Amino acid sequence: MIVAEVVRSGFVESVHHGIVAIVGGPGIGDVETPFFPRSSNKPLQTVGLLNAGFVPREEADLALVSASHDGEPFHVERVRAILAAAGIGPSSLGCPADLPLGETARRAWLRGGGEPERILMNCSGKHAGFLATCVINGWPLESYLEVDHPLQKALADAVSRLSGEPIAALGVDGCGAPIFAISPLGLARAFLRLVEASPGTPERRVADAMRANPSLVAGTGSEDTVLMEAIPGLIVKRGADGVSAAAIAGAGAVALKISDGASRARVPVLLAALRRLGVEVPDIVEPVLGGGRPVGEVRAVI
């Protein structure tokens, strides 16, 4: 179904199709067919790490382990500290070398003569949590990304339990880690379980850490950080190829997938879905630029 349209100079020039699962309200499209949530799975995987014995240095580490971070210095140093506390270094990371995801951080890194490094990759926090959990359990580090590794089995169990459905398919995410397919409805259910869990449980610890440290979940000016700073009680986690999931205790949860993978439609559709749940949301416009200035917008039509 059409969930967003691109308007330039008052003319609708294109549309985005998608699926929106809403726990607490009517959804849009086929919300029960499994898909790959990509990085929106990360908070669920962090719950799996805690269940498997991961001990963060401080609760804020849980936000970074759940993050697709922008590679700002405070992100990179925290990843380094998680690894150091486990007695290992960045060379153990199995994610590919990359430049910072955030434009400002990337430019600064390149100006300083920096090159791609594994610790800069936006999933390095997740991988650091993976490795630290393996160290605690005495599991092999070299094979921690294999689907039959004890770590990945524990993470799959956590995703399945939180979503309330079996893993439909296994894939390989952009960072090299296994990714687990569930339905959009299952993803929304899982996010709601995080925010509505009892204090002190692994689920609630992850939700609380994300809400208390939104800058660690994404970065300065990035969509997840901006949304959590603007909407009290919200947890939200974007995923590649037009995926996002969010929840607020007492209101409900949302999981969406933009069919063509366009990230520009994520925020307008997410905000529209949250409004359906009665959540007061900011008026954030996704601009369409012409000559470097706004000449239109991407707007939700759900």
Rank of each mutant, 00 (worst) to 15 (best):
G24I: 12
L270W: 02
E223H: 15
R276G: 14
E72Q: 09
L289G: 00
S66W: 02
E58F: 03
L192Q: 12
S222Y: 14
A158D: 05
A265L: 11
L289C: 00
P73F: 00
G296T: 02
A300P: 00
G174T: 13
G89P: 01
A273L: 03
A245T: 10
R38F: 04
A154T: 04
G125S: 05
H127E: 04
A63F: 04
V195R: 12
G219R: 00
Q152M: 08
V301G: 12
D173C: 12
R118H: 01
Q45G: 07
M121A: 09
F35A: 06
K42C: 11
K42T: 12
L145C: 09
D70S: 15
A188I: 05
D241K: 15
R205D: 04
A240E: 07
T133F: 10
K257F: 13
R107K: 15
H149I: 02
A240D: 11
G29S: 11
L192M: 08
I258K: 02
G87Y: 06
E58V: 12
R107Y: 05
L50G: 01
G221D: 13
A81H: 01
P166H: 10
R78Q: 15
V288C: 11
A212I: 07
S124G: 03
K237C: 02
S160G: 07
E146Y: 05
A190L: 09
V226K: 13
V254S: 12
K257Q: 13
I302P: 04
L194T: 11
I182N: 04
E59Y: 11
K42S: 10
G219P: 09
I179D: 01
V281W: 01
A255G: 07
S160D: 09
Q45I: 06
G27H: 00
G113R: 00
L50K: 05
S259E: 14
A272S: 15
E297K: 14
A218P: 08
M228Q: 12
V12D: 02
F35L: 15
S124I: 01
P73C: 03
G278K: 09
I302D: 04
G102S: 06
I231R: 08
T133V: 04
T133Y: 12
G164F: 01
A154Y: 10
I284A: 14
L145Y: 13
S263A: 15
Q45C: 05
G200A: 05
I28W: 14
G125A: 06
G171P: 02
G29I: 08
P287K: 05
S263D: 14
P73N: 01
N51P: 00
G125I: 03
A63Q: 03
